[in-house]
């Protein structure tokens, strides 16, 4: 492939991915609605909301609030760019992690009780999912023998050897997507969308875009799990993996009620880490037996 074709594809992915992620979230809303015997909004409602927000008059409480919203967007977008360029997975993780911390700091900068409550909870969420996410990425890297995303796409057997890591990533996805039972930070019935509450208009749109990039990055990590020489098979299975992950997240969202923050910490700290450790142990055993 010519370099400029590759570059064009990469740029297209970087620009379009968040909107595709948003459409996926639109589908998610419809399916959730159907599960609850509702009709639900149109698929593109998420995007309509986004463009409407951009056109609104900017209202703000102070300037740092905006600075940190932009930082959040820039860092998660940068993480996604690094991912598309096929660079180091750990640096990508760090950039995205810094981004999510900025979101919480942004919520702290305003003097607002709900915003602060949300920011505190957001930080606890980060403490809950980040270790699991990092361990999952490390295990992927160790198994593939490289932390470069470009190399990882050349490895075929991740799903077969790391099924439990995939399970752990779904737990991370539940938190990242602010779904029950771990939507403690944005809990709309009690703290009215928490860290986002003091953002409005275009600034709220900025945080939304950031959120989509985060989501797109997660989906990117999921696509690492299956690779085949046959590009059609590869793409179909990748889409299937995303669909499975999303459906599981939805079912969990619909059958569970919100848990407390303590329960969330306990669950990810135990379940997430145990699942990954078990997967690690299985690999080590298999290696010692000589199967792989």
């Amino acid at each position: 492939m010519d370099w400029w074709v590759l570059l064009a594809i990469q740029i297209a992915i970087i620009v379009l991915a968040p909107f595709l992620a948003a459409i996926l979230l639109g589908l998610d809303r419809i399916i959730t609605a159907r599960m609850q015997n509702r009709v639900g909004p149109p698929v593109l409602q998420v995007l309509y909301d986004f463009f409407k927000l951009i056109g609104k008059k900017p209202m703000l409480l102070n300037r740092p609030q905006v600075i940190f919203a932009v930082l959040y967007l820039m860092f998660v977008a940068f993480a996604f760019v690094l991912f598309v360029l096929g660079l180091d997975l750990i640096i990508i993780f760090f950039a995205a992690a810094a981004g999510s911390v900025f979101l919480a700091v942004g919520a702290f900068t305003v003097r607002s009780p709900y915003s602060h409550m949300g920011a505190n909870r957001e930080l606890l969420q980060i403490a809950a999912y980040e270790p699991v996410f990092l361990l999952a990425l490390l295990l992927i890297g160790i198994q593939a023998g490289s932390f470069n995303v470009a190399d990882l796409y050349a490895v075929g057997d991740l799903m077969i050897l790391l099924p439990l890591v995939f399970v752990a990533l779904i737990a991370v996805l539940v938190i990242k997507l602010q779904k029950s039972p771990y939507d403690v930070a944005t809990a709309h019935q009690e703290i009215v969308s928490g860290p986002y509450i003091e953002y409005s208009g275009p600034y709220l749109a900025i945080t939304k875009l950031g959120h989509w990039y985060e989501f797109a990055l997660m989906l990117g990590v999921i696509t690492l799990f299956f690779n085949s020489d046959n590009i059609v098979v590869s793409i179909i299975v990748k889409i299937a993996l995303i669909a499975v992950a999303m459906l599981v997240v939805q079912v969990i969202d619909n059958v569970t009620a919100r848990l407390t923050k303590e329960r969330m910490l306990k669950f990810t700290a135990t379940f997430g880490i145990i699942v990954i450790a078990a997967n690690y142990a299985i690999i080590v055993v298999l290696q010692n037996v000589g199967v792989i």
């Binding site: 702290f108 900068t109 980060i126 980040e130």
Partner: peptide, 25 residues
């Protein structure tokens, strides 16, 4: 290390947030 670094981010972010907390002007 993985757990510790997530928790470290938590307490520093809390501190950063506090010194920034302020009204519009």
């Amino acid at each position: 290390l993985a757990i510790g670094s997530a928790v470290t981010a938590l307490y520093y972010a809390k501190w950063m947030g506090r010194i920034m907390t302020v009204g519009a002007t």
